[in-house]
Each structure stands twice: as C-alpha cells, then as structure tokens.
Simulated assay, not measured.
Amino acid sequence: MSLLKFASMTCIALTLGACQSMFQPSAPKPLAFTNDASEQVKAGCTGQECPLVNIDTLHFADEPKLDALIEHRLLKMTVNSPEEAMAPSLNAYREQFLRTADSRNSTYLQAKVREQHDDLVIVELSSYLDTGGAHGMPGRGFINYSRKEHKEVTLQDMLLPGQEQAFWGAAKVAHNNWLISSHYGSDPEFVKNWPFEKTPNVALLKDNVALKYDVYSIAPYSEGHVELKIPYSRLKGILKPEWLPAKG
C-alpha cells in the first residue's frame, strides 16, 4: 500500500473533519496570558554570593490545564537524578532550594510563549542551575498545546502510524544541514565525537518543525542549545495531515 493511500485511509477512519489542517487561514485570537516573575535570595543573606531563585512563568486565565502543565514541566526540569523527588509546586521548590543552597548557588526557571498560531500555543521552557562551578547547567523544553483539545500534543500525536523512523531520518538531514552551515561538517573529529541524536524537544512552529537540543548532546557546551529546523515539505506522509499547513 502506498504511503499516500495509507494517509488517506487514516483520514477516512478518523471523525469527520479531523484531517483538515489545523493551520487555518483565519487563526483564532491569541490566547491571553500574564507573566509572573520573581527573584528571591536566601533570608538573612547579603552580598553577591547569596543563593537566589529566579522564576519567570506564565498564567493563562482561560486555560488552567496549560497553567498546571507549565508548572509541572518546569518542576520536572529541576530534578537532576532519579532519586530526587520533585517539589509539589514552584513555591515549594523555591523555599526548599533557598533553605538548602550553598553560597553562589542559584537557579532560574522560565516559561515563555514562543509562538501562537492557529489552534496551537507553543511554550518554550528554560532552566539554569548554578552550583558554583565553572558554569551552570541549562535546560530547554517545549509544550505544544492544543486549545481545541485542551491538552499537550506529543510527537506520537503528530506522527502517522509507523513513521517515527522516517521523522528522525528527516531530523538527521536537518542535522547534516546544520553541520554544513556551521562548518563542522568538514571536521571529521567533530562529526565522530558529536553524532546525531534524538531529542524530546519538538515544536510545531508556524513555518517549520523545530528540534531543540540540550548542551553536550550533539555539540560542546560552547554551542549552547542547538536548534534544528525541518521544513513541513519534508514531512508529508510522516506527520498526520492535520499537522501540515493547508498551503502545503
């Protein structure tokens, strides 16, 4: 069975209208949100080396599920080992960190709206933990939130059945393009030491699918969070039709 025929049969099997592109010409009004930013140092401490917690998050009055999801994902980014328990709330995490942190320790958590388009709100998550070493450890993540379904859209939700390998094949092509554009492709030692890897950080942006990588995953710390971009044109027959732009 051809891939195109399979995709068409998949659409027929779904409810009426489910295979219409989520990328509609008349996008809904952006979802309103407020920023909630705070910075707090350890009680009774003065000077430049006081432990501090900086939290910059978002609140969506009309989407409480998204609020809860953002808090959960930020808290998950604070867990650094399998034995470490996740704090029940951002406030609890702040209190716990400041109570136990040593001098020069700091932590930073941020949620920001990367894009709003069509049915989706794309939230980018950032973390940074400094324990007084040469440099801190940053982290990144994405939430693809469907306003229509009131839930996160995962990679498995995006893909047609059996297409995960093809998706990562397209990602590897994007990685090769990044190697060439960054001039690392001509360095055999770099290619050997920093091979392509999968990442859990996938975002359905308006113009492409973005993959964000943690430091030390496919490049040295100095390269920061490498972001690969896959054109939607490469993902026909891989993504479910509703996640492809209508113009495509």
Results as ranks from 00 to 15, higher is better:
Asn176Phe: 13
Leu205Phe: 09
Asn193Val: 03
Ser182Thr: 09
Ala170Asp: 07
Leu204Met: 08
Ser181Phe: 09
His175Glu: 09
Glu164Val: 14
Tyr184Arg: 11
Thr199Asn: 04
Val173Ile: 12
Leu160Asp: 03
Leu179Ile: 07
Val173Pro: 08
Phe190Cys: 14
Ala174Pro: 00
Ser181Ala: 08
Ala170Pro: 01
Leu204Pro: 03
Glu164Met: 15
Gln163Val: 06
Asp157Ala: 06
Ala166Trp: 08
Trp178Pro: 00
Lys198Trp: 13
Thr199Lys: 05
Asn177Asp: 05
Val202Pro: 02
Trp178Val: 05
Tyr184Glu: 13
Pro188Trp: 06
Gly169Asp: 07
Trp178Met: 00
Val173Ala: 09
Gly185Met: 01
Leu205Ser: 09
Lys198Cys: 14
Gly162His: 07
Ala174Ile: 00
Asn193Lys: 14
Ala171Pro: 03
Ala203Ile: 02
Asn201Ala: 10
Glu197His: 14
Val173Phe: 07
Lys172Met: 06
Pro195Leu: 15
Ser186Met: 13
Leu160Ala: 05
Gln165Trp: 12
Thr199Asp: 07
Tyr184Asn: 11
Leu159Ser: 03
Gly162Val: 02
Gln163Arg: 14
Ser181Gln: 11
Tyr184Thr: 10
Val202Arg: 02
Leu205Ile: 10
Gln156Thr: 10
Leu204Trp: 02
Lys198Ser: 10
Lys206Ile: 05
Phe167Pro: 02
Ile180Gln: 06
Thr199Ile: 08
Thr199Val: 09
Trp168His: 15
Leu159Lys: 04
Trp168Pro: 12
Pro195Met: 15
Gly185Gln: 02
Glu189Leu: 08
Pro200Phe: 12
His183Val: 12
Asp187Ala: 12
Val202Ser: 01
Phe196Ile: 09
Gln156Asn: 14
Glu197Val: 12
Phe167Leu: 07
Tyr184Leu: 12
Leu160Ser: 02
Ala203Val: 04
Ala203Tyr: 01
Ala174Gln: 00
Asn177Glu: 04
Lys172Phe: 09
Leu160Gly: 06
Gly169Ser: 13
Leu179Asn: 05
Gln163Leu: 13
Gly169Leu: 14
Pro188Val: 01
His175Asp: 08
Asn193Trp: 11
Asn201Asp: 07
Ala203Pro: 00
Gln156Asp: 10
Glu164Gln: 15
Ala170Cys: 07
Ala171Ser: 08
Val191Cys: 04
Gln156Phe: 10
Val191Glu: 00
Val202Lys: 01
Gly162Glu: 04
Pro161Trp: 13
Ala171Asn: 03
Val173Glu: 08
Leu160Pro: 04
Gly185Trp: 00
Lys172Val: 01
Trp178Thr: 00
Glu189Phe: 13
Pro188His: 03
Ser186Val: 09
Leu160Cys: 06
Ile180Val: 06
Val202Gly: 00
Trp194Gly: 00
Pro188Ser: 06
Glu197Thr: 11
Gly185Val: 02
Trp168Asp: 14
Ile180Ala: 05
Ile180Phe: 06
Gln165Ala: 11
Gly185Ser: 02
Pro200Ala: 14
Asp187Thr: 11
Pro188Thr: 04
Leu159Trp: 04
Phe167Glu: 01
Ala166Ile: 10
Asn201Met: 12
Glu164Cys: 12
Pro188Glu: 04
